[in-house]
Amino acid sequence: MLITDVFETIKAAGKWFDLSKAHRGGERQTPYVARTGENNGLGAILPDQGFDAPNPGKAITIGVSTSTVFYQPVSFYTSKEIQVLRHAELSAVNGPILVTILREQMSKFQWGNGASLERLKATRIMVPVMTDADDAQRVDWAGLTRLGEELFDAAVAKSHVVRRADLGEDLLPDLNFEPMFVVDVPGRQGGLFRAHKGRRLITAHRKRGNMPFVAGSRGNNSIVDFADVPALFPAGWLTLIYNGDGGTGHAKYQPAPFSASDDVIVLEPITGEASEEALLLIVSMLTHQCVPKFGFGYKLTLHRLGRQKILVPVTTNSSGEQVVDWVGMRLYGRVLRARAERPMSAVLGAIP
Rank of each mutant, 00 (worst) to 15 (best):
K252C: 09
G14T: 04
E81G: 06
R124M: 02
R194N: 15
A227K: 13
P47D: 04
L46T: 02
G297S: 12
L232H: 14
P269G: 07
R24D: 08
D228P: 01
I62F: 07
V156C: 04
Q137D: 15
T271G: 07
A350F: 02
L19Y: 12
G306Y: 14
D134L: 12
Q29H: 11
L280W: 00
T301M: 08
F152H: 05
P343M: 09
I270G: 02
G143Y: 06
G43N: 05
D48V: 01
V229H: 06
T239F: 15
L147E: 15
A215E: 04
H196N: 12
L311V: 10
R124C: 03
Q289F: 04
S65Y: 00
P31S: 08
A346F: 08
Q110S: 13
T78I: 01
L144D: 02
S319Q: 13
I62S: 10
R35N: 11
I82Q: 01
D132N: 13
I265K: 01
T9H: 12
L144N: 01
S75E: 07
A278G: 12
M126L: 09
N220E: 05
Q72C: 06
Q29M: 06
L192S: 07
N94A: 01
Q105F: 09
L240S: 13
K58R: 14
G306P: 13
T61V: 09
D153H: 15
M126T: 06
W326P: 00
H303A: 10
R307C: 03
L172N: 00
S261N: 05
L171E: 07
L120S: 06
Y332E: 03
Q83A: 09
E118Y: 09
L2Y: 15
F193E: 05
P292S: 04
V347A: 06
H160T: 01
N55G: 00
P56W: 03
G247D: 10
S20A: 12
G114C: 04
W237M: 08
R218Y: 14
R337M: 01
I282Y: 01
R164A: 11
L175P: 11
F7G: 02
L102Y: 13
D135T: 03
H303D: 08
P255H: 12
I241Y: 03
S222F: 03
A142G: 05
G57Q: 04
W16H: 14
G14C: 07
G297N: 06
E321L: 11
A142Y: 06
K207W: 02
L151I: 11
L167N: 01
D166Y: 04
V283Y: 01
Q110C: 03
D228H: 05
M106I: 11
A251H: 10
F76H: 10
K121T: 07
L305T: 09
N317I: 03
R208G: 11
I310L: 13
P212K: 03
K80Q: 15
A260N: 11
N94P: 00
G216W: 02
K121W: 04
A92P: 00
D135A: 14
T203Y: 10
F294S: 07
L171P: 00
